[in-house]
Amino acid sequence: MIIQDWLAQVSTYAGSIDDLFALIGVLVGFWFIVSEGVFFWLLYRFRAKDGVKAEYITGEEKHQKRWVSWPHYLVLICDIFIIYGAVTVWYDIKQDLPSPDATIRVIGQQWAWSFVQPGADGELGTADDIATVDELYVESGKLYHYQLEARDVMHDFSVPVFRLKQDAIPGRVITGWFEPTTPGSYDIQCAEICGIGHGVMAGTVIVQTPEEHKAWMMANTPQVRDSISIAANTAR
């Protein structure tokens, strides 16, 4: 009945979203069971019986209204807990951006994802950027900022195991963050309908250990590859 039973948690904030879900589940679950319980009990208790006339209760008097208003105040208290939880989780994930170890660009278009990572210099928009399509290679334990763009229509960058989701809006660049924890390869889905190819707009995020990631960077940095070999030659 909780999210992590269905899907692994692979980012630092996945746990807090799942905990919020569980908190809400407990609070509303309680009210749900109480309401349905009372409801079915009343249906059984006051089923029509021969010769028994129904009572005449207006419900307008104070001692009667109490039966509705007290539960109702308790619901309000539960709401306050939920609001507190929701606001803090939201603040941590969407509003407050911790400083990044790296920044990547994520671009949605009909119907593919492209990703741009900084090369060895750690900066986007330079010659050693690494561009990939539909596959995002990241390093576990490293905090990433993403700059999300869309080329044509609305898309939504969703990585369920990260509990990450953000609409991509043409004409805007939206910045957010994530920090992967466990190496592995996971789904990226588009979570905003983007035309007939919406169902094939799949991507993969490959979370690598620092060593793997370093090797991948080496192997895929286009221009730096040459300079590396030069450096290796001079060292020799």
Partner: peptide
Amino acid sequence: VTGIFLGASGADIYLHDT
């Protein structure tokens, strides 16, 4: 009651559009 999960912004990050 399931609407509460979605109205709570923090939980909606994950549940939105699912």
